[in-house]
């Protein structure tokens, strides 16, 4: 992978997007600004410009870059495992409000263990139950932070 080239292109794309779309659309300018330098978009524009220049410099420097060899400790099924784990994170984030932290933690842990290659149910089941429960009670009882319980409200309420 040509890391420097891709990095440079990403910086350039972000710099251009900021200057042409995100800053004009995302920053609300007051009707009257006393000095141009006090405008809310003045500083972000400078930073976006710097980002664009840095992107050009990184991309320019990458012209002699050779494709990096894959790491020696790369897993044979690295892409599949990473894709599965990223999908798990997406599902975790989406289902968290509905499932609650304990149930989502249980399912998330089981899936994460499974993708990582740890399939011993005698080990993973107790861990998947205990870890979210212990964190839940720590935050609730010690740190006094209420944690959403979602589906398990009927079980955990009042405990």
């Amino acid at each position: 992978m040509k890391r420097d080239l891709y990095s440079g292109l990403i910086f350039i794309a972000l710099g251009v997007a900021l200057l042409t779309i995100l800053v004009p659309m995302g920053i609300v300018e007051p009707r009257k600004v006393r000095f141009a330098a006090l405008s809310p978009s003045y500083y972000p524009r400078i930073v976006a410009g710097v980002l664009l220049l840095l992107g050009l410099a990184v991309a320019w420097r990458s012209r002699r870059e050779t494709t990096a060899a894959p790491a020696s400790n790369r897993h044979p099924n690295a892409t599949g495992r990473i894709a599965c784990f990223i999908a798990l994170l997406g599902a975790y984030a989406l289902l968290l409000p509905w499932l609650g932290f304990v149930a989502a933690g249980f399912l998330g842990l089981l899936a994460a263990f499974w993708i990582a290659g740890e399939h011993r149910l005698k080990l993973v089941l107790p861990l998947a139950v205990l870890v979210p429960l212990m964190l839940y009670f720590f935050f609730l009882k010690v740190a006094l932070i209420p944690i959403p319980t979602g589906l398990l409200t009927f079980l955990l309420q009042g405990v």
Partner: peptide
């Protein structure tokens, strides 16, 4: 083994991030 450690750290991260402002 990391295959046990890292999934536990993931759940810890989720609880930790929520505890800042009590917001998902």
């Amino acid at each position: 083994p990391h295959r046990i450690l890292f999934p536990i750290v993931l759940v810890l991260c989720v609880f930790g991030a929520y505890a800042v402002n009590n917001t998902i």
